[in-house]
Design a binder for these strands. Structure first.
Lengths: 223, 223
DNA sequence: AAACAAGACGGACGATCGTCCTTATTGATT
DNA sequence: AATCAATAAGGACGATCGTCCGTCTTGTTT
């Protein structure tokens, strides 16, 4: 019993107990921080304006995270959670294989087109910003991108394994190409203010999958 | 004679005459500005550090361009010139059609892999930074991207017109897909520090062109 | 020769940045 | 009940930002 209590409150628990109030504040701040960062970048995100936007004091927000870098890292973690919920978790309802892959593609378009972040895909904006800035933030973003690439590759691989993409043998190659048109459509749409790039990206993926022998009855899940 | 003199010094000439010295200074500053902007963004580019990097005074550099936005616009213009020289002009030596398209692709990879800008493709970095920031800088970047897309589309169209891509009818669609894997390889390479993404992008383009009926003898120009 | 325009600098301005220190309050632990 | 830790705000710090003001120099124009 004593051991169980010890485990239950180890390292995290007693801190979380005290931080219930603070965690709500942090969550509220991070909600705004994600939006601001997608619009102006993680470096352009300033503690002062963030505090003003959330109706708190600058020193209060600063103390909640300790440093700007810690705030940036927390913002990245929060964005990962949102992306995972909206895209990855939401795709788990579909049956494994090509159906789930097509569902994943559609969910990504919904995520980007629906502006889950007002400045477009959070990771596209911030990864490009930090790709030449060594540090913990860059590492966290690179890890997020890597994990996403792995997940996308794995989703393609499951479609291969179930024989639904007979023309394909390199899952990571297709994942690369899908992610490429994802990001291109995201960027072009933001810059031109049009949804047309998304149609181009969808057409590219649809044609590519059809060329690999995918069942056309399943590809309708993309639209 | 008087008329010829008038033409020779109209609007530009008498200014250029006085600005010979200043233009050299501007050119020197812009060379450094392009590099800094590709690394830290056009907004992260500060007049003070730019002046320090070029060995001039802050007020001197500021006066050369008038305002930060004017400096940013000049930097974009300089980057366009460099890109045009290294990629577009350099491809004009190849015969029109598929050969020139393949040469253009190879030159783009050289441009990105060779880090003509230390922070990777200048326009990828800055367009993503400004895609949600209304203003003259965003407009200039959008125009640059648009012009590039038009040129790439036109290059594809010439290959179609000469019957070298019998399987294709929508030139802009292929241009979209090519630019997508361009940017994806640029970003992924910067973030992972590897050249592998460029091989993925090259493989994607090669397979796509081959699938459209392109002559394999010509596709070797890609490598 | 005189007048002028533009480069280049030192210096200062108000604003904003991230950080730190102090203080009061409040919830959790002993 | 008493001690402690964390939230939260106020305020100040040094640094840096973009911009502007004189001032000197220099090359061009009239």
């Amino acid at each position: 019993m004593r051991a169980a209590e010890q485990r239950a409150k180890g390292a995290q628990a007693h801190v979380d107990g005290r931080r219930v109030r603070g965690d709500q504040s942090r969550r509220a701040v991070l909600e705004v921080a994600m939006d601001l960062a997608s619009l102006e970048g993680l470096e352009g995100l300033s503690i002062g304006r963030l505090a003003a936007a959330v109706g708190a004091s600058k020193s209060g927000v600063g103390a909640l995270f300790g440093s700007k870098e810690a705030l940036q890292l927390s913002t990245v973690a929060a964005a990962r959670e949102l992306f995972t919920r909206r895209v990855i978790d939401a795709s788990r309802g579909a049956p494994r294989g090509l159906r789930r892959l097509c569902t994943l593609v559609k969910l990504w378009f919904d995520y980007s087109k629906g502006r889950a972040f007002p400045g477009g895909c959070f990771f596209q904006s911030t990864a490009v910003e930090f790709d030449a800035r060594p540090g913990a933030v860059r590492d966290a973003l690179a890890q997020a991108l890597d994990d996403w690439d792995d997940y996308l590759t794995q989703s393609v691989q499951m479609a291969i394994d179930s024989g639904e993409l007979p023309g394909l043998d390199d899952a990571r190659q297709l994942a690369f190409e899908i992610d490429a048109v994802f990001n291109e459509s995201n960027n072009r749409s933001l810059l031109t203010g049009s949804d047309a790039p998304y149609e181009r990206a969808l057409a590219a993926i649809e044609a590519r999958l059809a060329g690999l022998g995918a069942d056309r009855e399943i590809l309708v899940l993309l639209a």
